[in-house]
Design a protein around this nucleic acid. Structure first.
Lengths: 254, 254
DNA sequence: CCAAAAGTGTTTTTATTACACCCATGA
DNA sequence: TCATGGGTGTAATAAAAACACTTTTGG
């Protein structure tokens, strides 16, 4: 296995890594996918290295697909982290000791590099579709509510902060939701997604008016039943129109 | 000299480079700074590598300062270029041959790397303040009008395109101009800057109204004289207010 | 029958756009 | 004196925000 890893690095960029902030939406909360490193209580974002014959975007897709089981996810680069002190919360020695206890002494020689720059990606995924899967360095992969994210390894807390900013920026120029919600959803659910991402309330009537004005949503005959209240209509995105709106840009200015 | 270069690379990241699109504004046109490679007619953006003890932002500042003589310029990362085929317009063999004719055969072994990822920065500078200065690989550094930029080495045409998009994006959320104009300027000059960047005309009265509403500009008593028309007032940015507006964000929505 | 949440339009306010005449300057 | 470009305000239109009552549902 060690052998396989070294082989991987022979075919990969060493000084460049890549980390993904994977956003999901569940029970009215934004969540991110985190990994716990083998033999430790330390968490980090999913990430990895770029193969020599692979673009950065392809690498991000590959890594994401390995951690979630999904392909063709919404995935976008948002910032490249190039500080010298990116490892400030790298309990450098202690972490290495713990990991060597698990992986064997000297295992990381030639795998942990003197300095790396990391390209930050964020992904939007449908919570229920994800099969969180740890990688070879980690033994747990699970969702965390944004508010409960612990202190992470490296500069990964900063990465999440910036990813969230990028998402908030994006939501004002492009529709968001297709990737985060199940195929059919209600208007109040979509509204809660927007309220969660932007962390502020909207007026129901104005919200519906604005979203419908983009002409990317289709209201279905079906309603969601089961709650002790009036059954809300179900909607779905019209993919072609949604994609077109994404390219041409919208102005969500509430 | 070769020695010095190799020494540099011993202390620098090899798989990561960095390229700057430097925007200036002169005679009503946006210009970018380009370099011509020694012994060739090939042009590229100014760029370089990151030292091991230097952040990516610091490296960009260093490189920019070497090419322009300026320090403390507005400089911002906008995208990281990670395609495998970044060298498509790298007339790979021909360029290398020409360069080896200048620098000596085998000179580039160990300096041109199997694969690099490049962090794109864009800079806004005051045209008249710049002292264009070639680097060690190039023998000419000069301004080019955006419209006249030739086919560049590597993926640098794409970089400029994306940099311009980033600038256009930025101009709608943050004031731009402090870095591109001389200290004192007229309202029509500022308007022409906006018109040039966004490539569309504005109404004079509405433009002035909106810009003044941000409360970042001060109208001076002085006027610009010399033209065969009514002398326009001079304005200047109030730095503290300009910076605050930059942090808090404005909405330029004309 | 009650609590909970969804459906629905109109008015007010604010922001954006369109538009034209006079004035100062240098040649 | 004339051509050029700058200074200035108001009215019309469009967009955003505020706002409340009725309906349906399950318990």
């Amino acid at each position: 296995m060690e052998h396989k890893l070294r082989e991987f690095f022979d075919n990969a960029l060493k000084e460049v890594s890549l980390d993904c902030t994977v956003f999901g939406f569940h029970e009215g909360e934004l969540k991110v996918l985190l990994l716990r490193w083998k033999g430790t209580e330390e968490w980090s974002l999913p990430g990895g290295h770029i193969l020599l014959d692979e673009s950065a975007d392809d690498a991000a897709g590959r890594i994401l697909s390995q951690r979630t089981g999904l392909s063709d996810v919404f995935l976008q680069q948002f910032y490249t982290f190039g500080n010298v002190n990116r490892y400030v919360y790298h309990p450098e020695k202690e972490l290495l000791e713990k990991l060597e206890a698990t992986f064997g002494k000297g295992f990381f020689d030639g795998i942990i590099f003197r300095r790396t720059v990391s390209i930050g990606y964020f992904a939007l995924v449908e919570f229920a579709q994800v099969q969180p899967t740890p990688d070879w360095f980690t033994d747990e992969c699970r969702w965390w509510s944004l508010a409960e994210v612990p202190r992470l390894l490296f500069d990964h807390n900063e990465m999440i902060e910036r990813a969230l900013k990028a998402l908030r920026q994006r939501i004002r120029n492009q529709p968001v939701g297709y990737n985060l919600l199940p195929e059919k959803f209600t208007m109040p659910e979509l509204q809660r997604l927007y309220e969660t991402i932007l962390d502020r309330p909207f007026d129901r009537r104005n919200f519906q008016k604005l979203l419908m004005s983009y002409d990317i949503l289709e209201r279905l005959e079906e309603k969601r039943v089961g709650a002790a209240n009036k059954s809300p209509y179900l909607y779905r995105f019209v993919k072609e129109k949604y994609d077109r709106a994404g390219l041409e840009g919208i102005s969500f200015s509430m």
